[in-house]
């Protein structure tokens, strides 16, 4: 394994993150604070408890997941699309480095950044509501697995996209609805029965539910099912990336 190459890509991408630290962190922190003010305080104060948890606290895992999923896709897709756009992708493609080492470098950096932002949001939430975490280690596992799987999705998107418009299209048209309708702000028990069934086809439901379980020990779907969903989602992403590299899809003539 070309460890120096993986390290070089990872450090180069992380340096970009640290250089733009203020934008990278200020924006998710401000939007999260707004969610807490609007949903947690203004609306939440008029709502009853959900699964025995005050609404302001209930939305914390969903908010973290919402941001982590969106950030993972955005970071990883930009990370690989930008060198493609500039043409600098010629270098990793002509270097003695395997496709999976390229993936580890780019997806690793995107994952790290998303986890950092997720943890910062968690820290911010302590300022607004009294959050408790029932299973801290599993919470970190869920956070990491979600960041990795969505970064893989972002990587696929970055290779697929031929323009900045396309790069924004998938997050805007597909990801945002899936994540918003995945139970970030509500328990799926609160939906009419038909929509509860429809919602079960949304992969985000399983991730958010599992993550929420790590906080409150209660979940919409079983924890095993949540883990299976992350596993299947990641496996699909791995398969697509393998196919992309094997065929040189939008990377090589």
């Amino acid at each position: 394994m070309n460890l120096y190459a993986v390290r070089a890509i990872y450090s180069f991408e992380m340096a970009r993150t640290f250089r733009t630290m203020l934008q990278s962190i200020a924006s998710p922190v401000i939007s999260t604070a707004l969610y807490f003010v609007v949903f947690g305080s203004a609306i939440g104060s008029r709502m009853t408890m959900i699964d025995g948890v005050p609404y302001g606290v209930f939305i914390v895992p969903g908010l973290i997941m919402l941001t982590v999923m969106m950030q993972s896709v955005a970071n990883a897709s930009f990370g690989i699309y930008f060198p493609k756009f500039l043409g600098t992708i010629y270098e990793p493609l002509s270097a003695p480095i395997s496709p999976w080492e390229i993936v580890i470098g780019y997806v690793g950096a995107a994952t790290t950044k998303s986890i950092m932002i997720g943890l910062i949001i968690l820290a911010v939430s302590f300022l607004f509501v009294p959050v408790t975490i029932a299973h801290p280690v599993l919470m970190l596992c869920f956070l990491t697995l979600t960041a990795i799987s969505f970064s893989l999705l972002g990587f696929i998107l970055g290779i697929w996209a031929r323009s900045f418009e396309q790069l924004n299209l998938v997050p805007m048209l597909i990801l945002t609805p899936l994540v918003f309708l995945g139970g970030s702000f509500y328990s799926i028990d609160m939906l009419p029965p038909v929509w509860q069934t429809v919602t079960l086809f949304n992969p985000a439901v399983y991730l958010i539910s599992g993550f929420r379980w790590a906080f409150f020990d209660t979940a919409d779907v079983s924890i095993a099912l949540s883990l299976l969903a992350i596993g299947v989602f990641s496996a699909i992403c791995f398969a697509v990336i393998s196919w992309m590299f094997a065929t040189g899809y939008r990377l090589k003539n």
Binding site: N2, Y4, A5, R7, A8, I9, S11, F12, A15, R16, R19, F82, P83, L86, G87, T88, Y90, E91, P92, S94, A95, P96, I97
Partner: peptide, 28 residues
Amino acid sequence: LVPQELMLEPFETVFETVSLSRGLFGCK
């Protein structure tokens, strides 16, 4: 390889970008 087009990351420094290349090619 020195490519024909001037393909470089605009916000990176000279030293960082050359270091990246060295790393990509598996050198300490």
